[in-house]
């Protein structure tokens, strides 16, 4: 019984490894590695939270085919990314380039951290400079030092 159960679970789980990419692999392993890295970096525009590696939408299929074609023509990775950005904009890449409007995306987290840190430091400094009030309205039992 247990054996049947385990077999069933293994079989069910194995559906997730069904191949999405049905394209022919490159003979050159180096080229294949570059190809696999690129398709992990490209957004499937039709299904916007998936990479084209994970998506079986036909647009993803078309894009994979184009990337394979470009690579086999000897294009560099940068040229492949240029090809995509030219047609679909910066949004096509999961890691948008640092230029123009996308600079904001890259800088914003750091800027928020700096501003927040600055405010915290200011407030703490101010509080530390305050005199300690013994007769405050602290909860009974709370230690006031």
């Amino acid at each position: 019984m247990t054996r049947i159960f385990i077999t069933a679970i293994i079989l069910l789980a194995s559906f997730s490894v069904l191949a999405i990419d049905t394209g022919e692999a490159f003979d050159d392993p180096e080229l294949q590695a570059r190809y696999e890295k690129i398709i992990e970096e490209v957004r499937c525009l039709k299904c916007q939270n998936q990479t084209i590696k994970d998506s079986s939408a036909f647009l993803a299929d078309d894009l994979r085919r184009e990337i394979r074609r470009l690579l086999s023509e000897g294009k560099t990775d940068a040229e492949v990314y240029d090809f995509l950005v030219e047609r679909y904009g910066d949004f096509a890449l999961y890691r948008p380039r640092m230029s123009g409007i996308t600079l904001l995306l890259w800088i914003a987290p750091g800027a928020f951290l700096l501003v927040g840190g600055f405010i915290v430091v200011r407030v703490l400094r101010k509080r530390m400079a305050m005199p300690i009030d013994i007769d405050d309205d602290s909860e009974p039992g709370q230690v006031t030092s």
């Binding site: 078309d62 184009e66 679909y88």
Partner: peptide
């Protein structure tokens, strides 16, 4: 037929 022109035009749907 194969969506090549669609890609050139940035078509996604």
């Amino acid at each position: 037929e194969d969506g090549r022109v669609g890609i050139d035009w940035g078509v996604y749907g």
